[in-house]
Structure formats: structure tokens, C-alpha cells
Simulated assay, not measured.
Amino acid sequence: MKRLQLLWIALPLIFASCEEENFLREEQVRIDHYQTVASGEGLQLVYRVQIDEQIGSDNWSYRYDPIEGLDYEWGYVYDVKVEVIKVNDPPADGSSRRYKLKELISKTPVESNVSFEIGLKNVDYSSESFVQLHIEEGYQLLSEVPIACDAEVCNELYPTLESESYVQGKFHHVGDGSIYLDQIIVSAMK
């Protein structure tokens, strides 16, 4: 009986030490006010991030994995501390890293007049556009982020996506989680 009691006491310590062994490092991360489309495990929205000494520069990289504990909202720049944790046996297409929010340093709204560009079609990723039209919801980026636009821009959106290989959209934030398409930009290559 005494051995069983010792086992119950030791098990939490064993599991806690295993998790500590998986801890790799802590990072300070700046997360941009919008996400972009990239190809990882299929097309997905990814964070634009600056890590540690990159913060404040013009260099942004992509972070494909979510940050556990972060309730991300479009239109805000986040400064956070995250724990990077090694995943011992990741799924075949999964990441070998997990990111966990340790501290929210700041969450700063961007002005609504700040414009940004997001790819709407890139044949290097997919022959399909990244924009879907849902009867009730309207236009959405990867069926996740609502897109608003005036009648003229909306009317030229689908014909452009059908006929062109590389299409960008110039947007600004609306403030309700949706983005407003101001301009469609066609380029010869990405």
C-alpha cells in the first residue's frame, strides 16, 4: 500500500519533469495586425511575426503554428512572450514545436487608415483563389475573414481572380474583425 501511495506522489513529478524537458526557450514576439495566406498543410492564414532582435525592423517572417492562449484579433499589433516547447512525436504533417503564451506585453490597435496587402491568388500555391463567396456571409478570405468592398471593386473581384494568376488586395481594417478591400492589384509574378 505504501508503494502505491509513493507512486501517486511521484507520478505528477515525473510528468512535470517531462514537460520541463520539452521546454526549449522563451521568445519575445511581435505579431502584425493582419495575417497573410501561405501554403503549409494546405492553404492557411499565418501570423506575420518579428522575433527577438528583429522587433522594430522591416523584416517579417511567417509563423504557421498557433500560439496557445492568445486570442488574436485583426487590427492589433501584439507584443508577447512565448514559450517554445518541443513536440516529441509530432504528427506526420505537424510541427515539432508548440508555442504557448507566457505574457501579453501589449495589444495596440492600428489606425483604420493603415493599408496592407494580402495575396488573393497565387498559382504557385494553388490554382484556386484564396477568396470565397458565401451566399449569406459574402466574400471571405479562406472562408475565415470577412471581406467588405464597394460595388465597383466587388464587381471586378471575381473576374480578376478567374483571369489572372497573381492577384493582391490592398486593404484596411474596418474595426469589426473584417477587412475592407480598397484596390485589386494584378502582378506578373508573386
Results as ranks from 00 to 15, higher is better:
Asp52Val: 03
Asp52Asn: 10
Asp52Tyr: 04
Gln54Val: 04
Gln54Ile: 00
Gln54Tyr: 09
Ile55Ala: 14
Ile55Arg: 12
Gly56Cys: 06
Gly56Ser: 04
Gly56Val: 00
Ser57Pro: 14
Ser57Val: 07
Ser57Leu: 08
Asp58Pro: 06
Asp58Cys: 05
Asp58His: 12
Asp58Phe: 11
Asn59Met: 13
Asn59Thr: 15
Trp60Cys: 10
Trp60Gln: 11
Ser61Pro: 08
Ser61Glu: 15
Ser61Leu: 15
Tyr62Arg: 15
Tyr62Trp: 13
Tyr62Lys: 15
Arg63Lys: 15
Arg63Phe: 09
Arg63Cys: 14
Tyr64Lys: 10
Tyr64Asp: 08
Asp65Tyr: 04
Pro66Cys: 03
Pro66Glu: 08
Pro66Asp: 05
Ile67Thr: 03
Ile67Tyr: 01
Glu68Leu: 11
Glu68Met: 13
Gly69Gln: 12
Gly69Ala: 10
Leu70Arg: 06
Leu70Ile: 14
Asp71Leu: 12
Asp71Cys: 09
Asp71Met: 09
Tyr72Val: 07
Tyr72Met: 06
Tyr72Leu: 07
Tyr72Thr: 06
Tyr72Trp: 07
Glu73Gly: 01
Trp74Phe: 14
Trp74Cys: 00
Gly75Met: 01
Gly75Ser: 06
Tyr76Lys: 11
Tyr76Asn: 10
Val77Gly: 01
Val77Asp: 02
Tyr78Ser: 02
Asp79Ala: 05
Asp79His: 03
Asp79Lys: 04
Asp79Ile: 08
Asp79Val: 01
Asp79Ser: 05
Val80Asn: 00
Val80Ala: 06
Val80Cys: 08
Lys81Asp: 11
Lys81Gln: 13
Lys81Leu: 11
Val82Lys: 02
Val82Asp: 00
Glu83Ala: 07
Glu83Val: 04
Glu83Gln: 08
Glu83Asn: 10
Val84Cys: 09
Val84Arg: 13
Ile85Phe: 03
Ile85Trp: 08
Lys86Ile: 01
Lys86Val: 00
Lys86Ser: 04
Val87Thr: 13
Val87Ala: 04
Asn88His: 09
Asn88Met: 11
Asn88Ala: 11
Asp89Ala: 13
Asp89Met: 13
Asp89Leu: 14
Pro90Leu: 05
Pro90Glu: 06
Pro91Ser: 12
Pro91Thr: 10
Pro91Gln: 10
Pro91Cys: 11
Ala92Asp: 14
Ala92Pro: 13
Ala92Ser: 13
Asp93Arg: 14
Gly94His: 03
Gly94Met: 04
Gly94Val: 00
Gly94Ala: 06
Gly94Thr: 02
Gly94Ile: 02
Gly94Asp: 02
Ser96Tyr: 14
Ser96Leu: 12
Ser96Thr: 12
Arg97Val: 01
Arg97Phe: 05
Arg97Glu: 09
Arg98Asn: 09
Arg98Asp: 07
Arg98Glu: 11
Tyr99Gln: 06
Lys100Leu: 07
Leu101Ile: 10
Leu101Glu: 06
Lys102Trp: 05
Glu103Ser: 01
Glu103Leu: 03
Leu104Cys: 01
Leu104Tyr: 06
Leu104Gly: 04
Leu104Pro: 04
Ile105Phe: 01
Ile105Glu: 01
Ile105Leu: 07
Ser106Glu: 11
Ser106Arg: 07
Ser106Tyr: 05
Ser106Gly: 07
Ser106Trp: 09
Ser106Met: 09
Ser106Pro: 07
Ser106His: 06
Lys107Met: 15
Lys107Leu: 13
Lys107Cys: 13
Lys107Pro: 03
Thr108Pro: 00
Thr108Ala: 08
Thr108Asn: 14
Thr108Arg: 13
Pro109Leu: 05
Pro109Tyr: 04
Pro109Gln: 05
Val110Ile: 12
Ser112Met: 14
